[in-house]
């Protein structure tokens, strides 16, 4: 299995306070599923932001897809970001666009022909159970529906790495279950999935998932599988 993400002694400090993240070291394998847990404020969102290149670390080494992501020049970021799907904690849907157009955005950005985009979006809407809300604006969708649009947008371009920040926070337990199994099925396509959640119930739903636990900015690795360098290496 190839290493998709590798953190080595990563630290993150916002402004001049104490470090929000300290000495983070782990590696993620392609096609595997990871839960990132921890109390609110533990640093889950911060860690994910480092992973999807929305934030540069204050120190340490981050390798993505085998390349140094810390010194990556600006003009190479879009290429990396197109290989990463992100479900933002606050969804970040474009408010003026319909559900359909929001989901289509990554494919437009990648320059896919419109006919192929339409096919993919139709399939994706059905997959998240929103076929009948295609033309709805985000403001007219419920929280759970917005979350599913955000998930559809994150996975439509078949990213190699999917990062989801509390992606089941706004849906009922039944839908949460369904979504987690959808995420789980992405592994079969080779997608590495990282889901941040503080919903302990979810953790029991996917037996193949590995755990990462953040506690006040430090990473605990209950299974020992994430240790860097990896046990196999």
């Amino acid at each position: 299995m190839a290493t998709i993400v590798q953190f080595e002694n990563v630290g993150l400090r916002y402004g001049s306070g104490t470090e929000t993240l300290s000495d983070i070291s782990f590696s993620l394998q392609s096609g595997a599923f990871y839960f990132l847990t921890g109390a609110s404020g533990a640093g889950k969102t911060s860690l994910l932001r480092l992973m999807y290149l929305a934030q540069r670390p204050s120190r340490g080494i981050i390798r993505l897809f085998g390349e140094d992501a810390v010194v990556l020049p600006r003009d190479r970021l879009p290429g990396f970001r197109r290989r990463i799907g992100v479900v933002f904690q606050d969804f970040r849907l474009v408010p003026h666009l319909s559900a359909w157009d929001n989901i289509a955005l990554p494919l437009h950005v990648a320059g896919m022909p419109v006919a192929e985009i339409n096919e993919a979006v139709r399939e994706m809407l059905a997959w998240v159970g929103l076929a009948d809300r295609a033309e709805a604006r985000p403001a007219t969708l419920s929280g759970g529906e917005q979350q599913r649009v955000a998930i559809a947008r994150a996975v439509i371009a078949r990213p190699e790495l999917l990062v989801a920040d509390e992606p089941t926070g706004n849906v009922d337990p039944e839908m949460a279950d369904r979504l987690i199994h959808l995420f789980g099925s992405l592994g079969k396509l080779g997608t590495t999935v990282v889901v941040a959640t503080h919903d302990l119930h979810l953790l029991t739903r996917l037996p193949q998932a590995q755990m990462m636990r953040l506690d006040r900015g430090r990473l605990h690795d209950p299974t020992g599988l994430l240790r860097f360098p990896t046990a196999a290496a």
Partner: peptide, 16 residues
């Protein structure tokens, strides 16, 4: 600002 940030995160280039 918000929309631009999202577009960047989806892999949009500055030129796009």
């Amino acid at each position: 600002r918000g929309t631009i940030e999202v577009m960047h995160m989806l892999g949009s280039t500055d030129v796009q």
